[in-house]
Design a protein around this nucleic acid. Structure first.
Lengths: 158, 158
DNA sequence: AAAATAAAGGTCAGTTAAAGTCAAAAAACC
DNA sequence: GGTTTTTTGACTTTAACTGACCTTTATTTT
């Protein structure tokens, strides 16, 4: 018997498919549709729609809030290249490693220099200074992955 | 379901655009137009048209009162615009505020869309999830400032 | 002139409608 | 039998929206 989470996963994927790579839902509505508590939607999103799996999840709380899930198309070389790198990246990222990656992306013409420059600024120790060193590299990695996904999705829709 | 606040924001922006960088409204009239209470206009102004976001809001009460919203530094360069924003930015930045800034930067051609998109990804709660909520908005601001500085420096050296 | 009235905008605390968090219970899987 | 995954729900946070009450300014009345 299919697990509820699988059903939800499937449903979201269909929505994405039908909708050109982008699903926009309301957590509570979707929850009601499949008859589960809202937080289970959150669970599914966090386990099956991660950056590493090629998805970007954005959301907004408060009145009129929503959740948007987008999938990369993986059709251009840049997308391939970045997804490949992203999957090889692991959980933590030092400033130095970040710079190496960015340099490669620029050298191989995968990311334009101005974009890389801004990314570098955001990923620098200077910017992340207030974060505990034990946590910093994890956050930096989350940021890197999310920024890369945003970059890919942006250039796709352009 | 478009949020009323968004409609109001858009409306005001159009007025500003049509009118050479300066919109003059009457709070209650605008409120009636979009069918909301007057104080919601105030709410929109205070969340999306702050000084730091490049606007100057003046008003006059009493009979024949008005509210005037002007874009600051319409004619200056991107670097000026960003420097002004940087100066007016405090210590903390929520995801929502970050998005308002970025939207403005793009709308006013101060930062190219792909760069803004990547910034948004890095500044999102999604990416900064592991940081304690008490600290998160401080870090986000540090990042924003750093990225903006990097952007300016980059475009200078070209 | 002074007082009263009308016509604006300002403030702020409270309500509603969303999403997020987290840990415990239940189920599924070795 | 123990471990991992799923499911649940109580509680938190955030953003939008509302309304009652306040302050300021202009106009009208006396």
């Amino acid at each position: 018997m299919a697990r509820l989470s699988d059903v939800i996963e499937q449903l979201i994927k269909e929505l994405i498919e039908e909708n050109n790579g982008c699903a926009e839902i309301t957590r509570s509505e979707l929850a009601e549709q499949v008859n589960c508590v809202p937080s289970q939607i959150t669970y599914v999103l966090s386990t099956r729609f991660t950056n590493g799996q090629g998805y970007l999840v954005e959301s907004r709380r408060g009145g009129g809030g929503w959740i948007r899930i987008r999938r990369i198309s993986n059709s251009t070389t840049a997308e391939h290249y970045i997804m490949h790198a992203l999957n090889a990246m692991g959980e933590q990222l030092s400033q130095q490693q970040a710079e190496v990656y960015l340099k490669n992306f620029v050298d191989y013409d995968v990311i334009p220099r101005p974009v890389a420059r801004v990314m570098k600024g955001g990923l620098s120790d200077q910017a992340l200074n207030r974060i505990d060193t034990g946590l910093r590299d994890f956050v930096r990695m989350d940021m890197m992955k999310n920024m890369l996904m945003c970059f890919i999705l942006g250039s796709a829709s352009k």
